[in-house]
Simulated scan of single mutants.
Amino acid sequence: MALKSKLLTDISLKGLDIAPSQVRGAVRIVPLLRRQVHGDLRLLRRSYDEDITVVSLEGEMTKPGMKYFSYVPHGLVMSWSDDGSPVASFGGQIVKPDGKRLDCGCASVRLMHRMAKRESANQLRFLPLHLAMEGFLSLFFSGPDIAWSEYSRYALSHGLGSRYETAVSGRYIAGLEDALRVFEIHSRQVGVLVFVAEALASAFVVPTPEDYRALHTSLLEDFYSDLIYQYGLLYDTTLPMDVSVDESKINSLADLRGAIAKMRSDWASFQGFMAEGLLQRELHSQRVYTAGPFVLQRFMTNLQLKHENYIGEAIARETGEIEYLKIYRLSEAQTRRAYLLSKLAQYNWNLDATAKALSHTREEFVCRIEAAGFGYLLNQQVRDAARKKVKKS
């Protein structure tokens, strides 16, 4: 895996083995087994019971007073050692209160500070997937740097304003809860690749098998794009895949062992190929926290329209080995919004230059911005003129 200043530039399964998948309905779960468990990094789930969580983002390269609102069912607490020694069991550690709880009558609210907060010398609490989603929402958030006349006063004063995205809880993905309940957990298993109707829905990796057993059901508390939810409703089975041993070539136990080893290798290669939309894909990563020999970072794959695109977070060693990984697959609408914002930022928010780069007329590009939900960034005169000209043509 290529590394640049300890930041991931792609995702690989270095140090992990892919085991044969298990299928139930449209859900395929592929176990990931760690070859060498170091033990110098551990993850613990900290559950929350509130209806909504408000996270203050001050100090995280955001505007003063910026806050993140979402339902947050749990956080993760990472503990590490700087010298490679095993981390003490979590049963002997002191659990600190996290944030404040408010009872508002109709709903309960938890107030928290920062997406990733250091709690002691070698302990950090962060909010899984929300860390990645907050980074996604903050992309190009400040809006135009130049006061172009085409933009509204709101855009020039407040940038993108209140950005939001919607997602679906894993409990609503058809068949996922049953699959997690009945599937076998291997002795060296530290993660999974989850496919719904053969579409990669999640990749989840933790440092140790003990951590994975404790966090196995947390996949139900993660959020998924509406695309995965729809796949779960539309399909009730996976594609047929048959890998078998040619009996005519088996003349001894050694032949049988070799044939089974080859079959498992073929399975691993094929299942890795199924996740090619994530694996070895160019990443844009951002460092969140350096914890001794580990770096907590969030990332986004290079955006490609009509292709799978992901955001996520990872903890990697100095060697590039991934100790923690969690991803979220962007829907096509989310990809389009991020793509448009990235192109506008690339051309300094100049409408004409961006439209030309995308092979659009100015009016077509304005209508595309409207369709993506960003029409409020433009002044009304520009929007009306574009609608009128497109309607005539």
Score class of each variant (00 low, 15 high):
Arg317Tyr: 00
Arg298Trp: 09
Arg317Gln: 06
Leu330Pro: 11
Met300Asn: 05
Phe273Arg: 10
Asp226Lys: 04
Ile260Thr: 05
Ala314Leu: 06
Lys262Leu: 14
Ile322Leu: 14
Ala214Gln: 13
Gln271Trp: 10
Ile260Met: 10
Thr335Pro: 01
Tyr231Arg: 15
Val295Asp: 06
Asp255Lys: 01
Leu220Ser: 07
Ile260Pro: 00
Gly292Tyr: 04
His307Trp: 02
Val245Gln: 03
Lys249Ile: 04
Thr238Leu: 09
Asp242Gly: 01
Trp267His: 02
Ala254His: 09
Glu308Met: 12
Glu323Tyr: 06
Gly292Asp: 04
Trp267Asn: 01
Ala316Ile: 08
Arg264Ile: 00
Ser285Gln: 06
Arg281Ser: 14
Phe273His: 14
Ala214Glu: 14
Lys249Glu: 12
Ala268Gln: 01
Arg287Tyr: 00
Leu256Ser: 03
Leu256Lys: 03
Tyr328Phe: 15
Ser331Val: 03
Glu308Gly: 07
Ile250Gly: 05
Ala291Ser: 04
Ala214Leu: 11
Ala314Val: 04
Tyr229Val: 00
Leu219Gln: 15
Asp242Ser: 11
Ile327Tyr: 08
Lys326Glu: 13
Leu233Cys: 10
Arg287Gly: 07
Ala316Glu: 04
Thr238Pro: 02
Leu233Gly: 05
Arg264Pro: 00
His307Gln: 13
Tyr231Val: 04
Asp222Thr: 07
Glu247Ser: 10
Leu283Ser: 05
Ser269Gln: 11
Leu253Phe: 04
Asp246Met: 12
Ile311Val: 15
Ala259Cys: 02
Asn309Ile: 07
Gln230Pro: 01
Leu325Glu: 02
Val243Lys: 06
Arg213Tyr: 05
Arg329Val: 14
Met263Tyr: 00
His284Trp: 03
Phe223Ser: 11
Gln271Arg: 08
Gln286Asn: 09
Glu323Asp: 15
Tyr231Leu: 15
Leu220His: 06
His284Pro: 00
His216Gly: 03
Ser269Met: 09
Gln230Val: 08
